[in-house]
């Protein structure tokens, strides 16, 4: 029995195809949990956007037309405004590129093109680093602080979730690259590259969800919001 015709796991001795099947299913289930968490964020964003409690959705300095503001509220000096929309899309695009590169690497591994795998996985890792840097720049240049209302909170948490996802991708990308270099990913054993590509594809979806929210649901539609007192300890 030659190891290259019948690849087995070094740890358990089970056939790679068995490991692949199991891991693929496991990954789908993990994605379900991740999707649920992301949906929780989406719900939080849209919920606060639609309610505009105390007129507190928009950051205090956002330029709203008269019909969009609640005149009952004391006017605060302009301090902050909504975030620019394009960076969300730009970062999304960078993540898509990283994902495409990983897919390229994985397809290359399947067809036995080791150089392609190395290039794909390596570049994918580097592009992910770039995405992380862009994401960081975006967060640190937002025109508002965490305390500037519902929109600011929701956007910051979406970005935090993006960072979390990117860090995971860094870990996976690094692993795929290092393992490819050691020859552990090849024509007969490519499932880990495949699963990484799958996961990255879902991460793209998470990013585009964030971009859609921050582009299309910006000004709250609720111009007559409920007014409550604060509950924080004074």
């Amino acid at each position: 029995m030659s190891t290259s015709t019948f690849p087995v796991s070094p740890t358990t001795g089970e056939p790679i195809s068995t490991m692949a099947r199991r891991s693929r299913l496991g990954l789908w289930f993990f994605i379900v949990a991740d999707v649920a968490g992301t949906i929780a964020l989406v719900i939080s964003y849209t919920y606060l956007w639609s309610l505009n409690v105390n007129g507190g959705w928009a950051p205090p300095g956002a330029t709203l037309t008269a019909s969009q503001t609640n005149t009952a509220l004391p006017s605060t000096p302009p301090k902050a405004t909504f975030a620019a929309e394009w960076p969300f899309w730009a970062i999304f695009l960078v993540v898509v590129i990283a994902t495409a590169l990983m897919w390229f690497g994985y397809r290359s591994a399947r067809s036995g093109n080791h150089a392609g795998l190395m290039v794909g996985a390596g570049l994918s890792f580097l592009v992910t680093v770039a995405a992380l840097v862009f994401q960081w720049i975006q967060i640190s240049t937002f025109p508002f602080d965490a305390g500037d209302g519902g929109y600011a909170s929701a956007v910051l948490l979406l970005c935090a979730s993006n960072i979390f996802h990117l860090l995971l991708l860094l870990f996976l990308g690094m692993g795929i690259f290092m393992r490819a270099r050691k020859g552990l990913i090849d024509k007969t054993n490519w499932y880990q590259a495949q699963l990484t590509s799958y996961y990255m594809t879902w991460v793209c979806v998470a990013f585009i969800l964030g971009a859609i929210l921050t582009t299309f649901l910006v000004v709250s539609p609720n111009t007559d919001p409920a007014i409550f007192g604060t509950f924080k300890q004074q």
Binding site: I39, V53, A146, G147, L157, K232
Partner: peptide, 26 residues
């Protein structure tokens, strides 16, 4: 995950001063 994110948002309110659950700030 819904429960988990509820706590993440609450922790963020507490530590980073966001306002997911504070009506005064939206």
């Amino acid at each position: 995950p819904f429960f988990q994110y509820a706590q993440i948002l609450g922790l963020s309110d507490r530590v980073f001063n966001t306002s997911f659950f504070d009506p005064l700030n939206g």
